[in-house]
Amino acid sequence: MDDRILSIKNLHVKYENDEMTVYAVNGIDLEVRRGETVGLVGETGAGKTTTAFAVMGLLPKKIGSISEGEIILGDIDITHATEADMRLLRGNKISMIFQDPMTSLNPLITVGDQIGEVLELHRKEMDKEEREKRVDALLELVGLPAERKTEYPHQFSGGMKQRIVIAMALACEPELLIADEPTTALDVTIQAQVLDMMTGLKAKLGTAIILITHDLGVVAETCDKVAIMYAGEIIEFGSLEDIFAGEKHHPYTVGLFGSIPSMEENVQRLKPINGLMPDPCNLPSGCKFHARCPRATEKCRTCIPEKFEEQGHIIYCHLFNENTEKEV
């Protein structure tokens, strides 16, 4: 049985206006299976959110477009699905949680009605009473008392609002949930509560999750597979063990880990990655990381690295293609 929920093949997304073209996503392949959490990690501008928007069909009209590749959800090709088709899928089979819970709720509608709205649109067979019951159940599911459904968003704290957003996203039991930095705006203690709840819900409902984050700590605690993105490409992909305990890594991944102050050891100086992300309007030739890479060679400047694969652990770097014995 094929348990692939989402497969993205060679996806390219660009944003265009009269003056310039921004190459936000440049040929990524990604598969998500039932019940799996895939972490999408990278810095600002790596193309994480653009990838999510492409899947959701939320790219800004006229400016953003999928220029190549395909996105298959279940067995439907949604690459060029119409707005009407996407509307049936969004909130139903796929849903998304945004970073900022403060701005993703309507301040003028009670939270109960906002959750109910999702059901009203996608579960037309439900009558009012059933809907109310479902809203109560959803609120309880995310750890909020059902009596509070008549309150407005401003009456809740940040962590609670994020729980409400999660309840909305899960209202129709989607197969795939895309969470874009769901805990970045929250305090660590509240983040721990929300992550704990999300892990519990995943086990209960079997929803597949794409978790977009820049925090490797969050990835380590929640994900099954990890994709590291840089300048619109997935430069390393593997299981949690491959990324956190494997021996071979892309130099960028090594740099990311070197940038985090360790809680366990005392390091005098951090080892940051020098320089900045390349300009997505004017991407460098060859490997896009070569200008910041401490191990770059002449080949990196001119040739695009090919895929190196070892038991599902994928790295795009010349270091491994020439001589696989070399270790980073």
């Binding site: 704290s157 962590g159 721990a192 992550l195 700590g217 969050v218 380590a220």
Partner: peptide, 20 residues
């Protein structure tokens, strides 16, 4: 509560604090 970027601690039980 701090998420630690290492898989060694993945299964340790976190001490969550209640409420806000």
């Amino acid at each position: 509560a701090i998420p630690i970027p290492s898989i060694k601690k993945r299964d340790k039980k976190r001490q969550l604090i209640r409420g806000e």
